[in-house]
């Protein structure tokens, strides 16, 4: 009890002394704002706040604390969205149109210049040799079918609203785009599986070697009529293989990131994924257009390799002479290969 009294006494003394020592200051502190609204002390209690300019100097986007569990909501302002808008609407349609139409124009010009590449008839014409077995053809077509749908539905993201929407109206286009999106997302899986299968099945025959260099120096048979030596796959086909493997992996990786948004990246990462996916996508489509051209219209006899799996022996000897020799040596007694042209024929 006595202690409390002592404490109270001390407080009283302090209270009595305080105004005397700090009279001037405390009077101002109680009423810092004068009649004109200005603070004579220059102290602006909340003025030294963060501002947009200052925060943008520290980092490219403004992030804070958020009281809801959605972490994405903590981004207050990300001006990178404007850059993404610039890329997607300003650059991408032009890049896509130029790359794809440019490839079509180049193929048309090549067709007009070179025409269909034919195979000279020889005594081996009419005989067949197995080039791709059933599993190889299955893998190819599964990937190919998925690729065509993926590329059309992918291009729909860029060009659909520009080309298709004015034709069929917004509601029909909305429904179509919804289905295109579903097909893009779901058929991506068989496509990725197909790319993996293709790499496993064909990587053995696609290791670049010296013959490829000779093939490239000779112009691959596209220029002139003389055909350079080639194994199972020539340098051009190896190029297609590595393009599919590389671009397929890149499209798969970026596509998976986009399929599971914000699993790994924040919003800026997602923008970058989008940019990579779309840029590689249009180049990939252009590359595959060339592949489709040379496999069908551009070269007589080439389609059979993936159609029935068996190609004309004369065609095979012209385009893949080293492979034919290797194959004939390996399956000399095989029934499907007429290894030595019988004199009677």
């Amino acid at each position: 009890m006595q202690r409390v009294a002592t404490l109270l006494g001390a407080l009283l003394v302090m209270a009595a002394l305080w105004p005397a020592s700090g009279l001037d200051m405390s009077a101002r502190a109680q009423s810092p704002i004068q009649a004109d609204g200005q603070n004579p002390m220059g102290a602006r209690p909340t003025a030294d706040s963060v501002n947009e300019e200052f925060l943008f100097k520290q980092s490219p986007k403004i992030t804070g604390r958020i009281s809801i569990p959605d972490g994405k909501a903590a981004n207050l302002i990300q001006p990178q969205g404007r850059q993404y808008q610039m890329f997607r609407e300003g650059w991408l349609p032009w890049i896509g149109a130029l790359v794809i139409l440019g490839m079509l124009a180049a193929l048309a010009a090549f067709f007009l210049y070179r025409g269909r590449i034919l195979t000279d008839h020889s005594q081996e014409s009419g005989k067949k040799i197995l080039r791709f077995n059933a599993f190889e053809r299955f893998t190819h077509w599964m990937t190919a079918v998925c690729f065509i749908i993926l590329s059309l539905s992918g291009l729909n993201y860029i060009f659909g609203k520009r080309l298709l929407m004015p034709l069929i109206g917004p509601d029909a286009f909305g429904a179509l785009a919804q289905w295109a999106k579903y097909s893009h997302v779901y058929l991506a899986w068989p496509f990725m599986l197909g790319v993996i299968f293709m790499v496993v099945v064909w990587v053995r025959d696609n290791i670049p070697n010296r013959i490829d260099w000779e093939w490239i120096k000779a112009g691959g048979g596209f220029i002139g009529s003389k055909h350079p030596h080639a194994g199972r796959f020539n340098a051009g086909q190896k190029g297609v293989f590595w393009m599919v493997a590389g671009f397929g992996a890149a499209m798969g990786a970026t596509g998976l990131m986009m399929l599971f948004p914000f699993a790994v990246f924040d919003v800026n990462g997602m923008q970058v994924m989008q940019v990579i996916h779309s840029l590689i996508g249009v180049v990939f489509i252009a590359g595959i257009l060339a592949h489709i051209y040379i496999g069908t219209l551009g070269m007589k006899g080439a389609y059979d390799a993936m159609g029935s799996g068996k190609v004309d022996l004369a065609w095979a000897r012209t385009h893949h002479d080293l492979w034919v020799e290797q194959e004939q040596a390996r399956t000399a007694s095989g029934p499907q290969v007429a290894s030595h042209p019988a004199p009677a024929e």
Partner: peptide, 17 residues
């Protein structure tokens, strides 16, 4: 919302989330 396909591009572009 009848036309929207839920692709999420608007979220990537939106500066304000």
């Amino acid at each position: 919302k009848d036309i929207c396909i839920g692709c999420g591009y608007c979220f990537y572009a939106c500066p304000f989330g």
